[in-house]
Each structure stands twice: as C-alpha cells, then as structure tokens.
Amino acid sequence: MGYDLMAGTGEVWPHLLEANPHISQITAVDLSAGMHQLAMKRLHAMRAHRIDFIEDDVLASNLPAASADFVVSTFGLKTFNAEQQRKLAQLTARVLKPGGRFAFIEASDPRGWWLRGLYLFHLKVVLPLVERLLLRGANDFAMIGTYSTNFGDARVFVDMLRAQGLNAEFRKAFFGCATIACGAKPVLGSADMNDAAI
C-alpha cells in the first residue's frame, strides 16, 4: 500500500498500477474530496477497488508513521515554498516503511535547453489560452508557467529529502522540462539504495 500525495484527479494511477501489478492499494491524499469523487466517477471506475481516499492536508498531516510501501506525487511541488517543501520531505520520511520507495515529478524550468523559450511560451501563453477557450471555469493552467519558472527544478527538494535521512537522487526528463526526486528509505544494515525508484 502507498500514498499518492496531492493526488488531484489521479493521472498517475493507471501508469503506476500497470507498471507495478503487485500494488494492491493506492491511497489518494488530497484536500478536495469532491474532485476525487468526480475523478473516480469519470476516469477511474474500473480501478476503484484499488483506490482509497483520505481527505488531508499534507502540510499538517497525521498519516501514520511507517504506513506506506511507497509515496508518489505528481505536479504538486511547484506551488510550495521552501518551508512547505521541507514539511513534505518530513512527511515522506515519516510515513515510509524502511525500504519504502518514493518518486516526485514536477514541471520544471529547462534552463540551458535551446528550446526553453518555446516551452515557456507554451506553458505561459498556450495552455492558459486553451483553458480559457475550451475548459470554461477551469483554472489549472493559469499560473503553471510562473510556478514552474519560480520552482526551477527538484534539486533543492532532493537535498531536503536527504536531510531527512532518505536516499534521494535527482533526475531529468524531457530535456529538463520535468524533473524527478526519487529514491528509498534506508533499511538498517543495507547497502545504499540511491538507485531505487518506483
């Protein structure tokens, strides 16, 4: 069993369950029960028996210690400031069992990539325009470009995870348009598990 923190509409669940058929249960953790219920009805009815839900604020969470085999989170980091990211790193270290794995992926600023300007134009102009024209009432993309450039990448969060005693590594995806913090909670007496990832 594991947690999807700030789960939203559960975009990662089909991929996670397909890649890891041994996973019996994913517990979605999010502030919005209504969004979760709508996502279950529209997107995840066929896997509802493998998805649980906890309405919870990850920045003030009482999730039980050592209760998860894995922790994942997609595209929630960029909205957090440094202190909030530190709290998220602390929560991750607390809820993971020894040997448990984690992976956080976030839209990032691909500094140094020659197509960076085009990518940022897509985030800051194209996506919000599509949202205004086709997804009336939605507000998911309005600030995505600003959040992503302010966030930079996941390197600082990797350092925060390491400060909590986790074996964490930094990875790039799509030329740095997304970055990943992944790894595992050490098992006493085990070798370094930096290469472990979901």
Rank of each mutant, 00 (worst) to 15 (best):
L5H: 11
L133Q: 10
E106D: 12
D153M: 09
G189I: 10
A19V: 07
S67N: 06
Y147A: 08
A184S: 13
G8V: 06
P186D: 09
R42A: 07
G165I: 11
F121Q: 05
T146D: 11
G176M: 01
S190G: 14
S108P: 04
C177F: 05
L123E: 03
S190A: 14
G99Q: 11
N62K: 14
N20I: 01
I144C: 13
R132Y: 13
A163P: 00
A65H: 10
E55N: 15
F70I: 02
R42E: 07
I180W: 06
G112A: 05
A178P: 00
Q37D: 14
L134Y: 09
L118T: 14
A68T: 03
M46K: 11
D52C: 07
E55S: 10
T27W: 04
P186S: 09
D192K: 11
L188G: 06
I105M: 07
D109F: 06
F53I: 13
A138V: 05
L134S: 15
M6T: 06
K172W: 01
T146G: 04
G112W: 09
P14T: 15
L133D: 04
S190L: 03
L31P: 14
T179P: 11
A103P: 00
E131G: 11
G112T: 11
Y147S: 07
A48R: 15
G2H: 08
A45P: 04
G165N: 06
E11A: 04
R132I: 03
R42G: 01
A196G: 02
D153K: 01
L88R: 00
G76W: 14
N81F: 01
H15D: 07
A82I: 10
V71A: 05
H44I: 13
S32A: 04
I105W: 04
T146A: 13
T27A: 09
F121V: 06
E11M: 05
L63V: 07
P21T: 11
Y119R: 00
I144Q: 02
K41A: 15
V72S: 10
Y3H: 10
L88H: 01
A28T: 12
T74Q: 08
E131F: 09
F121E: 08
M193P: 11
A93G: 13
L166D: 01
A7Y: 01
A93I: 05
M193V: 06
A196W: 05
F174A: 15
